[in-house]
Structures are given as structure tokens and as C-alpha cells.
Write a protein that binds this DNA or RNA. Structure first.
Lengths: 226, 226
DNA sequence: TCCATTTCTCGTCATTTTGACGATAACAGT
DNA sequence: ACTGTTATCGTCAAAATGACGAGAAATGGA
């Protein structure tokens, strides 16, 4: 039996929250096709490599970002026949959520890497679509899982957590109701006993992520009417 | 530049509800590897074919199931290096939800096709894992989307819809509270004006699926304590 | 025909959750 | 000491939930 031949890549939608806004990590392509255009970081899966391993490798290799914390999950696969001029390429997209870290370093294949506010960018390949899918996945996962903590450093305030929700959802949230829901939901956050110091306003208690895998009850965003 | 060569397949997790139990469509493999073993239906993606097109093709071609209604969405991709003895194969799994239809017919590559209650089956390749992922996806999607209607024929009763939830979740639901939630959630179901006839008990009103994409408020299953 | 049985549908009611907002606590800076 | 800022706790009406009771409307058997 014979069958068509494919190349397989992984592409990364790496999201973080900086200054209250949702940002995505983009690289300027250093080789053809789409040389010089902005794109999601990614690359070919090696001959004897698992998909998730490849995703993790690309994340550290091409962007210099690693560190503990954060979150990496598979997003979806894209394989339209003409999505890559080099031939038949299927890409497995991964979604990474990271705390706000120092600026990324350009990798081997990328001429530059930078955080950009999410939006329509005119990215290479079908990466605009992949980015949109990744953002939507992040938005809905904040409702039902404690994943917002992946955007935060190991210790964080409830206000910082709220800022994550506001940035990802693009809507403002009542601080008092959010405080109640975040501290009430079992396993979402755990108090550390410490507090912030030196910041303006009343000091805030510090929390770390809890051990729940699911948020119960969920924290639902405002639905459009209907 | 050179890069590793892959084959790409699609595999299908086809679910339906028969006699109050969740069933999955399995085929007995008609060729190597794993000849004679039960597996998910699937096959190679053609040279100039989109992934979703391939999934739809396999669904009709290999199982004889088609028809309107139902639902097909991408589930996830699996590409562990040693998952297929023939070489490096990445499979893109799709999840299909169908109303209870007549028995499937065996296709070209499959010696037989049959509905089996979901559970541990000792399937070929990593199909047990893919099946488990598909079932979990279906379970959680029933909470937040009107997808339960995909398991129903074009016209259905609230009780039939409840049976779907009970089968997929594996827990019983209070008929009166469910009736209230199903008929209250905007865009979930629409009355047709008709009713059932000839069945025991009081006739039930018939409904068709509404036009909502999301269930608001969601219908949440009972969470395990914690 | 009459009755028991089945199933659908609507109502009730206490409890919980939500959303909107008032008020106080605890800091930094001037 | 005063002002501004932010965190946290409380209140209260509205909405949603969960646990039931009970009537409506059919079938099937005595």
C-alpha cells in the first residue's frame, strides 16, 4: 500500500498578559517562504520526536522562553492542501500560557521575536486563523478551569488574577464579586500568608495556585444577548 | 532544507445513544497491522484533500453512515513515534455525534463494523486513548453547548434529550428540573407544535434544535466532591 | 367502562448563587 | 493629618438550583 507524503510542523500560540493587555509571541521569518513576514513560532517535527516534545523544544529553542509555571496544551491541527507552498504540510498547533517574562530572544530560524497585542496581524500562512482559535480557546478555558493562574507568577494577588481575566476577555469585572468567586471556588487559589509591600493602596494578600483541575462553580464571562 | 516524512491519517470517534447507553462505532481491521483487531474507523488522508474532508469521507465511505443532522468536529492529533509499526504516522482524530441509525455496513478496509458500548476495549494502536478523549470531550460539551441535539433525530421529545444526557454522563437526572432547564435556555430547543402518538404515558411535545451555539445558562453535571 | 399504570408537564418552596453596590481597612505620598 | 488608592468584607434583591408534589393525558388490562 502506498500513501501520500506529508511534512509535519508544530506552531505555537504563546500568550501572556503585559500591562493589562493580552499579547502573543510573534517571530519575523528568517527563511522562505514568507521571508520577513511575521508568524507564529514553530518548526518541523523531528524524525523520532513526539508532538508535545517538539512543541516544548520549539518554545525554548526558538524563543528562549522556558521556566516553570505556565501551561502548554495542544490546540488543533491544520492541513489545508495549499497552506504551505513547499508542499503538503500539516501543522499541529499548541497553545502556551506564560507569566509576563523578560523579552524573548530570537532563535535560529527567526530574525526577531516580539510580544504583540493580539489582533489581526496579517501573519504568514494561516497563522491568523490559528491565533484566533488559540485566543478563543484561552477565553473559554478561563471560564471552566483555573488556567488563569498560568499567566501569573508563583505568588500573585487576586487583583492580578482579575487583570488576567479582564485582559483575556476584554471586559472589566467587578473587583468585589471577583474576589468572592476566586476565593470561594475550591482549589482555585491558596493563601500563602504573605502580602504585597511598597505598592500604593492597601496591601493585598498573596496566593498561589490551588490543586483543582476544574473550576467549580465556573467563572462565566458576560454572554452577548441571546 | 530537508525534513522527516510522515503519513497522515484521520480516525473517527463516532458516538451515538442506543437504548439509553452510549455506543461507539468500531471496525474490525481487514489489513495489517493489527489485522482482525477492533479499532476506530479511519484511513489515510489523500494527496489533495483537506483534513475535515477526509474525515467526512471516511465517515460515509467506511461506515455507510451519513445523512443530515449529527455533528463532526476535530478532536486532537496523536503522533507518538512508535504508535504505528508502518512508520511515522500522525493521526488527526475527529469526533462525530450521530442519532441512532440503522446498523452500519462494513467498508472496504474493514471486515466488519458494529456499535459497541463505550468502555475499555483493547483497541488497536492508541485508539483506547483516543476514544477516552472523545468521550470526555462529548461529556463536557454537553454542558456548555446544545450538542446533545446532535444525538437526536430532527424532531425529539424533552425526555429523549434527557436520555442523551443520562447516557453520556452516566448519571440520572430529575425529569422535572431538566424539562425546565431545557425549555428555558434560549435557543436550545424550539417547539414544533406536534406531539408523540401511540406511546405509553402522556403524549410528549416534539421539539427541534434551536439556533443557539452556546447553552446559557449551561447545564452542568454533578461534579465529584472537591 | 373503569381503573391502574405510565409518562409528561407545570407548580411550589427553601437554598444557593449572582450581580450591583455601600462601606471600611490599610497602605503611600504630600 | 489629610488625600488618594486599592483591598476586603457586607448587604440585599434578583435569579438559578435542587428536591419534591400533583395534575394531565395517554395506554392497556379487568
Amino acid at each position: 500500500m502506498s500513501y501520500p507524503v506529508f511534512a509535519v510542523t508544530v506552531d505555537l500560540v504563546v500568550l501572556t498578559v503585559r500591562q493589562g493587555e493580552l499579547h502573543v509571541l510573534l517571530v519575523r521569518r528568517g527563511c522562505e517562504p514568507h521571508l520577513g513576514q511575521w508568524a507564529l513560532p514553530g518548526g518541523f517535527v523531528h524524525a523520532d520526536e513526539d508532538l508535545s516534545t517538539a512543541a516544548r523544544r520549539e518554545l525554548t529553542e526558538e524563543t528562549g522562553l522556558a521556566g516553570p509555571g505556565g501551561h502548554l496544551e495542544q490546540l488543533a491541527s491544520y492541513g489545508t492542501p495549499d497552506r504551505d507552498p513547499r508542499g503538503r504540510v500539516v501543522t499541529v498547533a499548541y497553545l502556551a500560557l506564560l507569566p509576563d517574562l523578560p523579552a524573548p530572544t530570537a532563535g535560529t530560524d527567526a530574525a526577531a521575536a516580539a510580544w504583540r497585542p493580539v489582533g489581526r496581524h496579517g501573519l504568514a500562512f494561516d497563522h491568523d486563523r490559528i491565533l484566533a482559535d488559540g485566543v478563543e480557546r484561552a477565553r473559554s478555558k478561563l471560564e471552566y478551569t483555573p488556567l488563569a493562574t498560568a499567566f501569573c507568577p508563583p505568588e500573585f494577588t487576586i487583583a492580578a488574577l482579575r487583570t488576567v481575566y479582564e485582559a483575556v476577555w476584554g471586559e472589566s469585572i467587578d473587583p468585589r464579586n471577583f474576589h468572592r468567586k476566586a476565593t470561594t471556588a475550591p482549589g482555585f487559589v491558596e493563601p500563602t500568608g504573605r502580602s504585597t509591600e511598597g505598592e500604593p493602596g492597601r496591601p493585598a494578600k498573596l496566593y498561589r495556585r490551588g490543586d483543582a483541575a476544574l473550576l467549580n462553580p465556573p467563572i462565566l464571562r458576560r454572554r452577548p444577548e441571546g
